[in-house]
């Protein structure tokens, strides 16, 4: 017996090579696609949160335009209206805006030439509604009429519809991009897995002709490529989570920008990625192995 090789200490080698240089490209591609898919998922979650924020902000507020009557000043009319509205159920806060703020709001429409002091600028009351049971515009108008106030309630309906439509478009656009990238990632994982398996055709052929059952061969490749894709998915997901954490840290409590606010809990969204990549690769490997065996048969 050879002094170098001792059968008593021999352990069977794997039917597939432990390391294969051809796998590097596959791992890289899968990792990059998983990274992009995770990043898109984080973007979609942040966009959804931003859209909800815009919507909530507008639907949670109303503006009341108060026109003073002949026997009272604009400031007292606005004060009376704020006091009235504060007592309406479903109103969290009603605050009369100062004349300067009201003038600042209409200044862009009138330009510098106008002497605003001579104009009968209506006073505004900013109303913040309670989150649980917000008051309706009709309730506010009714309360103002009861107190004999000449006022118009703007519930931002015109703006709100546009904002909500825009937010919905942004949300569905994000989900669409996420699904597209996820599908592309899955397709590339499947394609790369098939390519990797086709490159090992000689192993499939030998095992097949030596009497290995189809399921035995399929399991070998399934396990191998699932492990590889899971590892690559883990790298991609970790990179996306690190980038998300960086954006969160860089942006403080609001995230990088109020437009795409990232929360810490959002980072959990990347967790299923390695498992999903492994599943796709496993299915692709099993189907490809079955096809190869069918061709051989």
């Amino acid at each position: 017996m050879s002094v170098i090789f001792d059968p008593a200490r021999w352990r069977p080698a794997a039917f597939l090579p432990e390391r294969d240089t051809r796998d590097s490209a596959l791992v890289f591609v899968v990792a990059v696609l998983c990274f992009m898919a995770c990043l898109t998922a984080l973007g979609v979650i942040a966009a959804d949160r931003a859209a909800r924020g815009w919507s909530d902000q507008l639907s949670g507020e109303m503006t009341v335009i108060v026109r003073p009557k002949a026997n009272e000043t604009p400031d007292s009319a606005a004060g009376r209206a704020a006091e009235t509205l504060a007592g309406v159920p479903g109103v969290a806060e009603a605050r009369a805006l100062e004349r300067e703020k009201a003038e600042a709001l209409i200044a862009p429409w009138l330009g510098d030439v106008a002497d605003l002091a001579d104009l009968p600028v209506p006073r505004l009351v900013a109303v913040t509604l309670s989150r649980e049971t917000p008051a309706t515009a009709e309730a506010l108008e009714r309360a103002l009429r009861t107190r004999g106030l000449d006022a118009v309630v703007d519930d931002h309906t015109t703006w709100l519809a546009d904002i909500q439509r825009g937010a919905a478009i942004a949300r569905w656009l994000g989900i669409g991009v996420f699904l597209l990238i996820s599908a592309a990632a899955a397709a590339v994982v499947a394609f790369a897995t098939r390519a990797g398996l086709a490159a090992r055709r000689e192993v499939v052929e030998l095992l097949h002709l030596t009497g290995a059952e189809d399921a035995f061969i399929a399991r070998l490749f399934q396990a191998r490529f699932a492990r590889m894709a899971a590892g690559a998915g883990l790298v991609g997901a970790a990179a996306a989570a690190a980038l998300g954490a960086g954006l969160r840290l860089a942006g403080g409590g609001q995230g990088l920008t109020p437009v795409l606010p990232v929360a810490w809990s959002d980072l959990l969204a990347v967790l299923p990625c390695p498992l999903a990549a492994a599943l796709v690769a496993a299915v692709a490997a099993r189907l490809t192995a079955a096809n190869l065996i069918r061709e051989l048969a």
């Binding site: 090789f5 021999w10 039917f15 000689e202 052929e205 009497g211 035995f216």
Partner: peptide, 24 residues
Amino acid sequence: FRLLDHMSAFDNAAVPLRIAGAKP
């Protein structure tokens, strides 16, 4: 020949037995 290049001569020779489910 169709030998598996990543396996030793011993492993290559043992392939049919392993496929048949024999224990090392």
